[in-house]
């Protein structure tokens, strides 16, 4: 089960640029490593990250096997209006980790 840590200010001034930091728990198995029987462990990585505010996409990223375990992503947002920020990570097995945070812009 993936888990996530998100650092986003609860309040921001209109026009302010805020930094959002995310850390998600995931093994990011590359698909190139053999197990102790010599068989390749199937690839299982987070391949897509999306961030939306009230359904409007503000940031997205495609991830590849060179990413470390527990990928850390940070990006900025120009605060224009209040809303619910959704963070979504999708992995190779189709498992989706979703987290929501409220952002108040004054």
């Amino acid at each position: 089960m993936a888990r996530a840590l998100i650092n986003i200010p609860a309040k921001a001034a209109k026009g302010q640029i805020i930094e959002i930091k995310t850390l998600v728990s995931h093994p990011m198995e590359t698909g190139f490593r053999p197990d102790n029987q010599g068989k390749l462990i199937p690839r299982d990585i987070i391949n897509r990250f999306e961030c939306e505010i009230d359904g409007e996409r503000i940031f997205a990223a495609d991830l590849y096997p060179a990413m470390s375990a527990n990928p850390f992503l940070t990006f900025t947002l120009l605060a224009e209006r209040s809303g619910e920020v959704t963070f979504r990570w999708k992995d190779d097995r189709g498992e989706i980790t979703e987290e929501k945070r409220k952002l108040v812009v004054e």
């Binding site: 888990r3 840590l5 650092n7 850390l23 728990s25 375990a69 527990n70 850390f72």
Partner: peptide, 14 residues
Amino acid sequence: KDDTSNPGMLAALE
């Protein structure tokens, strides 16, 4: 130092 970037905090959360 930063609790959001320290992956050990994921273990603490679990």
